[in-house]
Write a protein that binds this DNA or RNA. Structure first.
Lengths: 106, 106
DNA sequence: TATATGTGCAATCAATCGGTTTCGCAAATG
DNA sequence: CATTTGCGAAACCGATTGATTGCACATATA
């Protein structure tokens, strides 16, 4: 079972959950209140998010508080950064070409 | 059919294709050479990436060159930025709380 | 013109996804 | 001690996914 940040954020409900928990930890019921789906459906999303370590559980009596593990989002950030660097390098090469054309034009 | 950047980058092959094309435009066959799957499978990924406007086709004779539309990745960047801002705000609040505790301690 | 090449598209299939319903269990509450 | 509450797990279901295979159709090439 593939379980990474990329697959986790593919679902809009999960993205919304991440945003919710970015503000502060919540229990499953509290989270489910924000959505139209059942608590169980939300619970499934929480399981997926926990499995790929985006969320962390904190048991308090019979309640479970889901916390965000912000560090995991770095995986996404890293990939995006890598992509942007590749693009930047490409534009640098383009700049070089343009520069060469310019100097030849003289 | 959901077709957004988030769903597009959920698949590892598609992420690899994006990275490939970040370096420069390629034809489907050239792209498929980099993977173990069939050309048709790659072609499907290209269709998905094109549908959500991450890729743009450029016909040249019987060849099709797939270009990256780097701008589309902004959707992802925006979401990530929004997330980071929420987290930052939370830490600001935490700072405030700590500040209050400190002044009370005096 | 006959053949090879580059490509998209449709049919098909097993696997996965996201949802609901039902259940079980431990912790709070009366 | 009985009941309510908060939660996860399992069974099930239709829809979607990612892959393969086979085909059609243009454009090059001999």
């Amino acid at each position: 079972m593939r379980r990474d940040v990329f697959q986790a954020i593919a679902d809009p409900t999960r993205r919304a959950i991440i945003m919710l928990l970015a503000v502060g930890a919540l229990t499953p019921n509290a989270i489910a209140d924000h959505f139209d789906t059942s608590r169980q459906a939300v619970s499934k999303h929480l399981r997926i998010l926990t499995e790929c370590e985006i969320l962390v559980q904190e048991q308090q009596g019979r309640e479970i508080h889901y916390h965000l593990n912000a560090g995991k989002m770095k995986d996404l950030e890293k990939w995006l950064e890598q992509f942007k660097q590749l693009m930047a390098k490409r534009f640098d090469q383009l700049d070089t070409v343009l520069e060469q054309l310019k100097s030849k034009g003289k």
